[in-house]
Deep mutational scan, measured.
Amino acid sequence: FDIYVVTADYLPLGAEQDAITLREGQYVEVLDAAHPLRWLVRTKPTKSSPSRQGWVSPAYLDRRL
């Protein structure tokens, strides 16, 4: 999967189903980028939180090589 970094805090609107909150600087794996406005991502697990999966706007993501 492609690795992206979150460029700004992402707080989903209440109406968005299956969306997750992301923090600036967080790394995520993009699982599904087929839709231009919503990408399915999975967060990297940390010592304090397990990995999470949900939909985010790709405008908040920047690809890492």
Results as ranks from 00 to 15, higher is better:
Gln26Leu: 04
Glu16Asp: 13
Trp39Ile: 01
Arg63Pro: 10
Trp39Ser: 00
Thr21Met: 13
Glu24Phe: 11
Arg63Gly: 10
Ser48Cys: 09
Arg38Met: 11
Leu40Ile: 02
Ala19His: 14
Trp39Phe: 03
Arg52Pro: 02
Ser57Gly: 04
Leu40Gln: 03
Glu16Trp: 10
Asp32Arg: 04
Ile3Trp: 15
Val56Thr: 05
Pro12Asn: 08
Thr43Asp: 02
Leu22His: 01
Asp62Ser: 14
Ile20Trp: 08
Leu65Trp: 14
Gly14His: 13
Glu16His: 09
His35Glu: 10
Asp32Met: 06
Val56Tyr: 01
Ser48Val: 11
Val56Cys: 06
Val28Thr: 01
Ser51Pro: 09
Gly14Trp: 12
Val28Asn: 00
Ser57Glu: 08
Gly54Ser: 03
Ala59Asn: 11
Thr7Met: 10
Leu61Gln: 00
Arg42Val: 05
Tyr27Ser: 06
Arg64Asp: 14
Lys44His: 12
Val30Arg: 01
Asp2Leu: 13
Leu31Glu: 01
Ala19Asp: 09
Gln17Glu: 14
Arg52Trp: 12
Arg64Cys: 11
Gln53Asn: 05
Leu37Thr: 12
Glu24Ala: 13
Gln53Tyr: 11
Gly54Leu: 11
Gln53Lys: 08
Leu61Tyr: 00
Asp18Lys: 05
His35Arg: 06
Leu22Ser: 00
Gly14Gln: 13
Gly54Met: 09
Arg63Glu: 08
Pro58His: 03
Thr21Ile: 13
Glu29Asp: 07
Tyr60His: 09
Tyr60Phe: 12
Leu31His: 02
Val41Ser: 00
Glu24Leu: 12
Arg63Trp: 12
Arg64Glu: 13
Trp55Ser: 02
Gly25Leu: 02
Thr7Phe: 04
Ala19Tyr: 13
His35Gly: 10
Ser49Ile: 11
Pro45His: 07
Tyr60Gln: 03
Lys47Tyr: 11
Arg52Cys: 05
Leu13Tyr: 10
Ile20Cys: 03
Leu13Glu: 14
Leu65His: 12
Ala34Phe: 09
Trp55Val: 03
Val56Glu: 00
Gly54Tyr: 10
Asp18Cys: 08
Tyr4Trp: 14
Glu16Ala: 10
Gly54Val: 11
Leu37Glu: 15
Ala8Leu: 08
Gln53Trp: 07
Val30Ala: 02
Glu16Ile: 09
Thr21Gly: 09
Gly14Cys: 09
Tyr27Gly: 03
Arg42Asp: 01
Lys44Thr: 13
Gln17Phe: 13
Val56Phe: 03
Leu31Phe: 02
Pro58Asp: 01
Thr43Met: 04
Asp62Asn: 09
Val28Tyr: 01
Pro58Ile: 04
Pro36Gln: 07
Gly25Cys: 03
Leu31Ile: 13
Ile20Ala: 03
Arg23Thr: 11
Asp9Gln: 05
Leu65Tyr: 14
Leu13Ile: 11
Asp2Pro: 15
Lys44Tyr: 15
Ala59His: 10
Val56Pro: 00
Lys47Met: 13
Glu29Pro: 00
Ala15Tyr: 14
Ala19Leu: 08
Asp18Gly: 14
Tyr10Thr: 06
Pro12Arg: 06
Pro36Lys: 06
Thr21Pro: 14
Asp2Trp: 14
Val41Tyr: 01
Ser51Tyr: 06
Arg23Gly: 05
Arg42Tyr: 03
Arg52Phe: 10
Ala19Glu: 12
Tyr10Phe: 11
Leu65Pro: 14
Arg63Gln: 11
Ala33Pro: 07
Trp55Tyr: 11
Thr21Asn: 09
Leu61Trp: 01
Trp55His: 03
Tyr27Asn: 04
Arg23Trp: 13
Asp2Glu: 13
Val6Ser: 02
Ala19Phe: 12
Pro12Ala: 09
Thr7Leu: 14
His35Ala: 06
Ile3Arg: 04
Tyr10Asn: 04
Tyr4Arg: 03
Pro58Ala: 06
Arg42Pro: 00
Leu11Asn: 14
Arg64Ala: 15
Glu16Gly: 10
Ala19Met: 10
Gln17Cys: 07
Leu40Pro: 01
Val41Gln: 00
Ala15Trp: 14
Lys44Trp: 15
Ser48Asn: 14
Arg52Asp: 06
Gln53Met: 14
